[in-house]
Simulated assay, not measured.
Amino acid sequence: MGTTQLETVPEPKYWHLKTVLSEALDSEFAVGEILPNERELAARFGVARATLRQALEQLELEGRLQRRRGVGTTVAPPRVGVAVADPGPAWPGADGTADTWQPVDGGEAIPPAAVAELLNVAPDRPVHVVRRTRMSRSQPLAAELLYVPAESLPGLSSIDAPTGAARARVILRELQRLELESRDQAVELGSARADDARELDRLPGAPVLVVTTRYRAQGRTAAVAVATYRADTCRLTFGDTGGGVRLLAG
């Protein structure tokens, strides 16, 4: 990987450095290979480490690099699109869907303020929560928290619900007893929080895609799911299949 004169280019230094690094990834590095540390790269290109970090973060956002705890920055494999969203409206965990999420835990918790507003519940009122994970090629792809107010599952209190993953399955089963009227989704770019980073094997602050899904039944919002996807393995496509946005992952 050679040096380059960055001072004479009109575009931002980090952007030009990103282009140079991208070309080097194609010609000099193999998939999975660990890049030199930041100090070596910054010295080689004659830039500040802050500039280098901006370039690396952009390449990570584009799926060219992966940063892992205890490993370092490695060259990411090519992304191969695989649909991860259900083709039509369905409750999470419904039989006969393309749902490959695995329930991890279930219980009660106070939802984030934004979720409480979507559910139209008091900010300090606990709701049922299901935690699920999604794996791809033995690697964590996404983590999801599903929030369900008590009003949506009036019969759950009379059920001797177990704990952990078994309780999560009970909540999902009871939710499917409702007639789903509609489902809408919103996607935004975010940064991995500590909990997300731990579950997704990422560094805190790594780019993620946050998909918020609102499920409506009985004329109101019956549940809200907040799924956090690794941005380095996911891409979005827009189709005319009637499903709107489809989330693809590699």
Score class of each variant (00 low, 15 high):
184 D>K: 09
161 A>M: 08
230 R>H: 03
203 L>Y: 08
226 V>C: 03
164 G>H: 12
172 L>C: 12
147 Y>K: 00
174 E>P: 07
177 R>L: 15
197 A>G: 05
157 S>I: 06
200 L>M: 01
209 L>G: 03
198 R>A: 14
186 A>C: 09
200 L>K: 01
169 R>G: 09
232 D>R: 02
196 D>S: 02
230 R>K: 01
195 D>V: 13
228 T>Q: 07
170 V>S: 11
202 R>F: 04
219 G>T: 00
164 G>R: 09
182 S>E: 15
179 E>N: 14
170 V>N: 08
189 L>E: 15
215 Y>M: 00
233 T>Q: 06
161 A>S: 13
200 L>T: 01
159 I>E: 13
224 V>M: 00
158 S>Y: 10
193 R>C: 09
166 A>K: 10
199 E>C: 01
147 Y>G: 04
178 L>Y: 06
237 T>Q: 13
156 L>P: 08
149 P>M: 05
181 E>Q: 15
157 S>W: 12
149 P>L: 02
157 S>C: 03
185 Q>S: 14
150 A>D: 08
163 T>E: 15
213 T>A: 09
186 A>P: 04
228 T>H: 05
175 L>K: 08
156 L>I: 06
148 V>H: 07
222 A>C: 00
236 L>D: 06
176 Q>D: 10
156 L>C: 05
167 R>G: 02
171 I>R: 05
212 T>I: 08
229 Y>R: 06
221 T>P: 03
226 V>W: 00
185 Q>L: 15
213 T>H: 07
172 L>Q: 14
184 D>P: 08
158 S>C: 05
163 T>I: 09
167 R>A: 09
225 A>S: 11
172 L>T: 08
204 P>F: 07
237 T>L: 14
190 G>P: 12
165 A>L: 13
161 A>P: 05
220 R>L: 01
236 L>C: 10
182 S>Q: 15
225 A>G: 02
220 R>K: 03
187 V>S: 11
220 R>D: 00
166 A>H: 13
151 E>L: 11
222 A>W: 01
173 R>W: 07
178 L>A: 09
150 A>I: 11
207 P>L: 06
151 E>S: 13
210 V>Y: 04
189 L>N: 15
229 Y>L: 14
236 L>P: 05
227 A>I: 02
168 A>S: 10
204 P>I: 02
149 P>K: 04
200 L>G: 00
158 S>L: 09
151 E>K: 11
214 R>Q: 10
218 Q>G: 07
173 R>L: 02
187 V>L: 15
221 T>S: 01
235 R>H: 11
